[in-house]
């Protein structure tokens, strides 16, 4: 199963902030059971989208050489529900960055309103800390996502 919960970046300022979007489609598996007859986008997946947006912002600071792992959702406020057909915009701002990890503040919006706000902390995890020998986070899809967005932007210019 693909585990990418953002469609693309629309803004990316290295080391500062990023904005990504996610189009919610009725075809997505999560709407089958959540909830039958009343499809709402699960908050856990919404937070995953914010975390992926923030994680790529954090990972880019270290040139994707560090494993950025979601460590703690320090705070979260949910203001509204999001439904199929809506577009979610994830905006994150880098609050702290240091050798051990980083914190971002994120806001998820639809066109109409703020859906949720969260503060998310990431830890930098060395492969040997979890019994691995090589990096395990930015190995493919997540890194390519930013690369593709940059290619699109360059193509427009």
């Amino acid at each position: 199963m693909r585990w990418i919960w953002i469609d693309c970046f629309v803004e990316f300022e290295p080391g500062r902030r990023a904005k990504a979007i996610k189009n919610l489609s009725q075809a997505e598996d999560c709407f089958r059971d959540h909830l039958p007859g009343y499809p709402i986008f699960p908050v856990s997946l919404l937070l995953e989208g914010l975390a992926q947006t923030g994680g790529i912002l954090v990972g880019e600071v270290g040139n994707f050489q560090r494993n950025v792992v979601l460590a703690k959702i320090s705070s979260v406020q949910v203001h509204a529900e999001a439904y199929p057909g809506q577009q979610l915009e994830y905006e994150v701002e880098l609050l702290d960055y240091r050798e051990e990890g980083a914190t971002v503040r994120g806001i998820a919006r639809t066109e109409a309103q703020i859906v949720a706000e969260a503060e998310i902390m990431f830890a930098h995890v060395r492969p040997d800390q979890i019994g691995l020998h090589e990096n395990f986070v930015f190995t493919g899809e997540l890194k390519k996502l930013l690369g593709f967005t940059r290619w699109q932007q360059a193509s427009k210019q």
Partner: peptide, 13 residues
């Protein structure tokens, strides 16, 4: 353990 880093971030801020 992960809270210690969070506390450090918050104290710094």
């Amino acid at each position: 353990s992960i809270d210690f880093l969070d506390i450090v971030f918050r104290l710094e801020r």
